[in-house]
């Protein structure tokens, strides 16, 4: 059977969801952001909630997320997305509001906003991309950088004496009664992406059921910041990030 006999519309099993725009993403080759964007767009499309979904993407690599997913978007100041999402959620309680935040954003400059939005139990989804580094500004140490991890501001690796400990913010978030679903996922293998999609679907369904805050950490790579090839970055993540940030559910109520 010739390839051209296979490539026919009726044989299509996987293609780009129409909710992803045709813009070429500005992310580096192999960046996890692309995978999460895709999954997010697929979930919104499959749930048929495009008209009801409003995204909030603050400063960081994903600040331009509005170029890629065809929904209404807010660009927020660094760390402040949960505050914007709080207002949007309160003013449009029937909408599906989500934030899409990196680790520097959510776990450093925006720690107050995320803790309090989750503690109020805002009926939103939080997608938290944790690659242990500031990607957009050039690979500086993040609150989540693991010990001994080299970054441009910890060139000899993160040291406790100088930089303190990496912050397991998701563990903290899971303690807050306002959250209904807290999980840590990844997107480096087909199985991981499938699980991630299930998690994001559940989170959006929770919004429909008005259950409170759903929080999904995605342990991610930043191959440019880590100075590794995309494939090596995934391997490094499995070897070094996963032991400190183990994959799995914290809470599912």
């Amino acid at each position: 059977m010739d390839v051209k006999d296979i490539i026919k519309e009726e044989n299509l099993v996987y293609g780009k969801t129409k909710l992803l725009t045709d813009n070429i993403m500005h992310y580096c080759p192999g960046c996890t952001h692309g995978v999460v964007h895709k999954v997010l767009a697929e979930v919104i499309d499959e749930m048929g909630i495009q008209e009801k979904t409003i995204g909030v993407a603050p400063v960081g690599c994903s600040v331009l997320a509005y170029n890629y997913i065809d929904i209404d978007w807010h660009e927020a100041a660094h760390g402040r997305a949960p505050a914007l999402a709080t207002a949007i959620n309160r003013l449009y309680p029937d909408k599906y509001v989500f934030t899409y935040q990196g680790d520097g954003d959510l776990a450093s400059i925006g720690t107050a906003e995320i803790i309090h939005a989750c503690n109020r139990g805002e009926n939103i989804v939080v997608i938290f991309i944790n690659n242990g580094i500031y990607g957009m500004t050039g690979g500086q140490m993040a609150p989540t950088s693991i010990l001994d991890m080299p970054t441009s501001t910890t060139p000899y690796g993160r040291k406790v004496e100088l930089n303190g400990y990496p912050l397991k913010i998701t563990d903290l978030i899971a303690q807050l009664p306002g959250t209904c679903y807290v999980t840590r996922q990844s997107g480096h293998t087909p199985a991981a992406v499938r699980k991630l999609k299930k998690a994001i679907t559940k989170a959006f369904e929770n919004v429909g059921k008005k259950k409170g805050t759903s929080f999904i950490e995605v342990v991610s790579t930043c191959n440019s910041g880590w100075k590794l090839s995309p494939v090596k970055a995934n391997e490094w993540m499995v070897e070094h990030m996963f032991p400190f940030y183990p994959i799995g559910d914290f809470k599912d109520e």
Binding site: Y14, G15, K16, L20, I24, M25, Y27, P29, G30, C31, T32, H33, G34, V35, K38, G187, H188, T189, P190, V193, R194
Partner: peptide
């Protein structure tokens, strides 16, 4: 392959 492709 398509599922893990970051650029779809």
């Amino acid at each position: 392959c398509a599922i893990v492709c970051p650029d779809t």
